[in-house]
C-alpha cells in the first residue's frame, strides 16, 4: 500500500474484499518513520487474518526482529540488502526464508535492467536479474519486483523484466509497477510469469474492486481464491 490514508482501515477493507496478502510500503526511512512502522505493524496485526508484509527503509536484523514480533509476517528489504547482501543471509538464517522478501526496483538500460535503490533514486550499476538470483541464493523467500519505467504509468507491468526474473529464480516473484487495468494483472501472471501481482492505485481509487479483479482472472483460467 502506498499513500493509503488510514492503513489499518484500508487493510481491513481489502481483507474483507478478498485480498490475498497486503504489502505496506513506506518510502521514507527516517527514525520517525521507523517508529511509525513498528506501530503500524502492531495495529495491522490486530485486525488482519491474512499475511502481510512491511517494508521501506528496513536496515537491520533488530528492526526485522521488532516487526516480526509485532505480528508482521514478512518484511521487505531493498536498499540495505543491496548495500549489505549479508543482511538477506542473516535474516533468512535467523527468521526463515518465508519472511524475507527482497524488493528490487529495476530500470531498463542499454543491456537488461539496472537495480536502483533509495526509492528509485540511486542507480547501482547492478543487473536486476543477477541480483534477483543472488538474493534467492542468499535465502530470500520472495522477490517483489517493481519496474521504475512502468511504475505510476498505468500502462501495464514490464512483462519482459518480470519474465526474465521469474524464470531466473526458484522462488515466487511478485510483479509490481504499472497495473492500470484488469488485463494488466492477467498479463503479469501469464506473459510475465509472475507468481502474484501487486496493484495499488487501481484499488485505492476504487477503479476496480478486488472481487472484480478475481472474477476477471478466474474467467480466464487463472486459479484464484474467491
Amino acid at each position: 500500500m502506498r499513500d493509503a490514508g488510514d492503513p489499518v482501515a484500508a487493510g481491513r477493507r481489502y481483507e474483507r474484499e478478498g485480498a490475498d496478502e497486503l504489502v505496506f510500503l513506506d518510502i521514507t526511512a527516517s527514525a520517525h518513520a521507523r517508529r511509525t512502522r513498528v506501530r503500524l505493524a502492531r495495529e495491522v496485526a490486530q485486525v488482519l487474518f491474512i499475511p502481510f508484509t512491511v517494508g521501506g527503509g528496513i536496515g537491520s536484523l533488530e528492526e526485522i526482529r521488532q516487526l516480526l514480533a509485532q505480528g508482521c509476517d514478512k518484511i521487505s528489504v531493498n536498499t540495505a540488502a543491496v548495500k549489505t547482501p549479508g543482511l538477506i543471509t542473516q535474516a533468512a538464517r535467523r527468521f526463515g526464508s518465508q519472511c524475507v522478501v527482497v524488493a528490487i526496483d529495476a530500470k531498463r538500460g542499454a543491456r537488461g535492467w539496472e537495480v536502483y535503490t533509495r526509492g528509485g533514486r540511486t542507480p547501482t550499476g547492478q543487473d536486476a536479474v543477477k541480483w534477483a538470483r543472488e538474493a534467492a541464493d542468499r535465502g530470500a523467500g520472495e522477490i517483489l519486483l517493481t519496474s521504475m519505467d512502468t511504475d505510476g504509468t498505468k500502462a501495464g507491468y514490464d512483462l519482459a523484466l518480470t519474465r526474465a526474473v521469474a524464470e531466473a529464480v526458484p522462488i515466487p516473484v511478485i510483479a509490481s509497477g504499472g497495473a492500470g487495468s484488469l488485463r494488466h494483472l492477467y498479463e503479469g501472471l501469464t506473459k510475465g510469469k509472475a507468481d502474484a501481482v501487486l496493484a495499488a492505485s487501481i484499488f485505492h481509487y476504487r477503479r476496480y474492486t478486488i472481487p472484480q479483479a478475481k472474477r476477471y482472472l478466474k474467467k480466464r483460467g487463472v486459479p484464484v481464491r474467491l
Binding site: 490475498d20 526464508s97 523467500g141 526458484p170 522462488i171 515466487p172 507468481d195 502474484a196 481464491r225
Partner: peptide, 13 residues
Amino acid sequence: PSRPGLKIPHMGW
C-alpha cells in the same frame, strides 16, 4: 520436489 516452474517454498493460497 523441485522442478522447473514449481516454486519452493510452497508459499501462498
